[in-house]
Design a protein around this nucleic acid. Structure first.
Lengths: 211, 211
DNA sequence: TGTGGCATTTGATTTGTATCAAGGTCCTGG
DNA sequence: CCAGGACCTTGATACAAATCAAATGCCACA
C-alpha cells in the first residue's frame, strides 16, 4: 500500500488529465503543479515542498501537470486504500481538511502576489516564502543572515511569479547589486538581513505566527 | 444555533483579524474576500456566491476582510456547535473537505488568470465564471445567447482581476464595441454568443464537466 | 426640478514588463 | 582540452496597462 518513488530534476511526475491512482507526500525535493493556456503560456499553481500532500482523494485523474523542479522523493499510497483510510479514520480526514485549508490560505496570498505586486516584490516574496518554509521544518523563525536553497530554474521562478525569465534574471541582478541578496552559484541565495528582504516583499513586516 | 444575517451592498461582514465566532453559507447575493498590502493595494482573494461556504472551523479570527458586493443573505451557524457537528458527523466533514478541494481548484484557475492572462481575457474569464456559476445553480450549461448578472462595481471587478478600474472600464467598452457583450444598465450583461465569450477568455474551448 | 455625490467613461501620458536578440557561463561528454 | 548544450545575463525596443486628469451619466434626496 505504501511505496516510494524517486524523480530527477525536470522529470514529469504526472501529466494533467492522466490517470492517477496514488496520492503522495513529499519526503525530499521540490515539485511544481503547472497549468497552461492553449497557446503555451504557463503558470505554476502549486509548489510542493517536503511534508506537502499531492493528489486528491476521490479524483481519478490529475488536474494539473506535476513536475519535479529538483530531485524528488515521494512517499506514495495507492488511492483506493487511502480513501478507505479516510472513511475509517476521522482523525486523518480532519488532518487532511486542515492541510487543505492551510493550502487555500497560502494560495490566497499567492493571488495577492500575482495580482498586485511588482516584479521586485514578487522575487523578494518568493525568497521569503522559501526561507519561512525551510525554517518551519526545523521549527525556527528566519532572522538576520540566512541562506535559502533555490531549487528552481529562472524559468520555473518566472512561471511561479507570473513573469518572464528575463525579468526574473534582471530583478535578481538588481537585488544582488543593491546588497539585498548574494548569490552562491545559481541555486543558493544568501540573505544578509531577512528583515530587509521582507521589507522588499511589500508584505506587513510582522511575520505572522510560527504555527 | 442557526440564524440569518442580512447585509447591504458595500457593507463589511467581518474585518480581517476580527474575532469571528460563526461560519456561514451564502443564501443570496455576493461577497468578496479581500486582502491588502500596507500601501493600500487591494486584491480580492475569494468571491462568494450562493451555496458557498464562509469561515474556517478551528479558527478564532477572520483571515480576510469580507465585504458584501451586493445585497447579501447569509445562513449562519455558531462556530463551536458547528465544529462539534463536524466531529460527530463524518459525512458533513467529508462534504466540507470536498467543497474546500473544489475551492482550491477554482483558486488555482484564478492564479492562471492573474499570472498569465491579458486584461481583455481577464474580463471575459470573469463573465464566463459568473455565467457558469449562475447556470450551475439551475443545473444547466451556458450556451448561445445568455444574460449575466454582474453585482460588482468596476472597482470590485478590478480588485478581482488584478487591474485598475479604468482598464476594466476600457475593456468592457471594447468588448461592447466589438459586439462580444451588450450592456443593460451597468450591472447586467447580455452575451450574444457564449462560445465567442469563452474564446475571448483564452481558456480551452471545451467547458469541462457540469459537476 | 434642481443639486450633490458617486460610479463610470474617456483622453493623454508615463512606466514597468514583455519581447526580441545577442553574449556569457558552466557543466558534460567526447 | 575542446565542443555542445542548457541555463543565465544583459541590452535595445515595443507595448499593455497604470497613472493622472477631466468629463459624463445617474440616482437619491431636498
Amino acid at each position: 500500500m505504501k511505496f516510494y518513488r524517486r524523480f530527477e530534476a525536470g522529470q514529469v511526475v504526472v501529466w494533467a488529465g492522466d490517470r492517477m491512482d496514488f496520492v503522495a507526500s513529499v519526503v525530499a525535493g521540490m515539485a511544481g503543479l503547472t497549468q497552461q493556456l492553449e497557446d503555451g503560456r504557463t503558470q505554476m499553481v502549486g509548489l510542493l515542498l517536503p511534508s506537502d500532500f499531492l493528489g486528491r482523494p476521490g479524483r481519478e485523474s490529475a488536474a494539473y501537470t506535476v513536475t519535479a523542479t529538483s530531485d524528488l522523493l515521494l512517499c506514495c499510497f495507492r488511492r483506493k486504500p487511502f480513501e478507505r483510510l479516510l472513511i475509517d479514520n476521522p482523525r486523518i480526514a480532519s488532518r487532511l481538511l486542515e492541510m487543505t485549508l492551510d493550502e487555500l490560505d497560502a494560495v490566497r496570498d499567492w493571488l495577492l502576489l500575482l495580482g498586485r505586486k511588482s516584479a521586485r516584490e514578487k522575487i523578494a516574496s518568493l525568497l521569503v516564502i522559501l526561507a519561512r518554509r525551510e525554517a518551519a521544518l526545523i521549527k525556527r523563525r528566519p532572522e538576520g543572515r540566512i541562506a535559502v536553497e533555490l531549487p528552481l530554474t529562472r524559468e520555473a521562478m518566472a512561471d511561479y511569479l507570473g513573469l518572464t525569465l528575463e525579468t526574473v534574471s534582471r530583478q535578481m541582478s538588481a537585488l544582488k547589486r543593491e546588497g539585498v541578496i548574494e548569490l552562491e552559484g545559481k541555486r543558493r541565495v544568501i540573505v544578509p538581513s531577512f528583515q530587509d528582504l521582507v521589507l522588499e516583499s511589500g508584505d506587513d513586516s510582522d511575520g505572522g505566527p510560527l504555527s
